[in-house]
Design a protein around this nucleic acid. Structure first.
Lengths: 171, 171
DNA sequence: TTGGTGACAAGACAGCTGTAAAGTCATTTA
DNA sequence: TAAATGACTTTACAGCTGTCTTGTCACCAA
């Protein structure tokens, strides 16, 4: 293992584990002295990595760590009623639909906000859709669209995927 | 000054100054011993403040400060050529157009990506608009729309506003 | 062969935070 | 009045990072 490989590995370790890692700890992992690690950290910092040293070890600030997970799902369906069923499936299983995204020939991705997290939200949203007779964004792409959804954990995400698949909405 | 007042002041100091502040430094400012500061930090942390201790002092992570400023402008115009003139005006004066936003009866805000920062970008974008004969998003609202633009400083922002106003694009 | 360079080990030290213990002083409570 | 409590000071120590110095070893070039 070269110095550079070790430095890359150090960054991976720091990024992967959220917790602090002490210099001596890293030194033992890579079978080098603590001073070598100190030097590696200096080099990594010089190359732009935002490594922070604390009395309990090194760490890097997590890149926008949110309590809940954000996932993107690709779904397809046509008709207003299908929209409702899709949304209901997601919120019933613990997900929150943040937006809808479709591909536009000029703008690339177009995002529309939804912020639908409960059955009540779904109702309000569908009411607006029906009242305004507005074309849903997904009509631009024959029903194909993406949603950003927020879920508390991986398990919830898997469950939502299963339920959507069961109803043939998932791509 | 009570303990609570001192703790509030400590947080203000840490948030205001970007740099690290040592325990002994804070102790001298408030005329107390370092141990009192240590205790204060412990209390503040217990109350949810994300204070980080480093060998060079305490600090709080800055709230996602970006190097450049992001501003939102409201403009209005009709016709494809006006689009081009508006974009050119912005990029010529040092702005980058990140997106276009219009109000949609159902989705609220709809965002389309632009990422136009140079005249070349403007050309490419206009080419796509003309080739695809795609309706620009702003046609939904009689030409009224918002842009998020990125500028290096306030001065640039003011200049862009002046130039847009001169051409009667600004609301 | 000789000299230079890079990577590393080992030890020592300074500065910082965090913890703990013991003592002082004013205020509150029984 | 006497005890208890809270805020603070002082002292001491452990653990960590960062810096510095000295020495070893392998490799490469003149």
């Amino acid at each position: 293992m070269t110095s550079d490989e070790r430095r890359v590995s150090i960054m991976e370790l720091l990024k992967t584990r959220g917790r602090c890692m002490k210099g001596i700890e890293l030194a033992e992992i890579f079978n080098v002295s603590r001073q070598v690690i100190v030097q590696d950290i200096a080099v990594l910092r010089a190359s732009g990595e935002a490594i922070i040293a604390t009395p309990t070890g090194y760490f890097v600030t997590p890149p926008r760590e949110s309590v809940s997970l954000r996932k993107t799902i690709v779904t397809k369906h046509e008709g207003v009623d299908s929209i409702e069923e899709e949304l209901v499936t997601i919120v019933d299983n613990g997900g929150k639909i943040l937006d809808v995204i479709v591909e536009h020939p000029v703008y690339g991705e177009i995002r529309g906000n939804l912020m639908v997290g409960t059955r009540y939200d779904v109702e309000q949203f569908m009411k607006k859709v029906r009242e305004d007779r507005a074309e849903p964004l997904s009509s631009l792409t024959e029903g194909l669209h993406l949603h950003t959804i927020e879920v508390p954990d991986e398990e919830t995400y898997e469950r939502i995927l299963r339920e959507l698949k069961k109803r043939n909405y998932l791509i």
